[in-house]
Amino acid sequence: MTAKPAALGASDKLTFLLSLVPFLMDHDRVSVTAVADHFGVSPERVRDAVNLIAMSGVPGETRQYLHGDLFDIQWDEFEANDNIVLTHLVAIDDSPRFSAREAAALIAGLQYLSALPENGDRDAIATLMAKLTRSSTGAPSQLAVSRTDADVTISVIQAAVRAGTQVEFDYLNSRGTAEHRCVDPLRIESVDNAWYLRGWCHLREAMRTFRLDRMSDLRSTDVPADSHDDGAPLPDTLFEGSADDLTVTIELPEAALGLLADYGPVPVAPGAAGQHSRAQLRVSHFHGLKRLVAGLAGVVTVVDPGPARQTVADWAAAGAARYDNDPAGGARIDDDRADGTSA
Rank of each mutant, 00 (worst) to 15 (best):
A3W: 04
A10H: 05
L18I: 11
S42I: 02
I53H: 01
A54Q: 09
M55K: 10
P59G: 01
D69K: 01
F71P: 03
T87I: 06
H88C: 02
I92G: 01
E102F: 12
P117S: 13
E118D: 06
D123W: 07
L128C: 09
T137E: 15
P140T: 10
L143R: 05
T153Q: 09
Q158G: 07
V161E: 03
G164N: 00
T165N: 10
E168F: 01
F169E: 00
D170H: 05
S174I: 02
A178Q: 14
E179V: 15
R181G: 08
D184T: 12
I188M: 05
D192L: 02
N193C: 07
W195I: 06
L197R: 02
C201P: 12
L203H: 14
T209L: 05
L212F: 01
A225E: 09
A225L: 04
H228W: 15
D229C: 04
D236Y: 09
D245N: 13
L246C: 13
L259H: 13
L259T: 08
Y263G: 07
V266A: 11
P267C: 08
A269K: 08
G271V: 07
A297S: 14
V299G: 05
A313Q: 10
A318L: 07
A320G: 03
Y323T: 11
D334A: 15
A338N: 07
D339K: 03
G340K: 06
A343C: 05
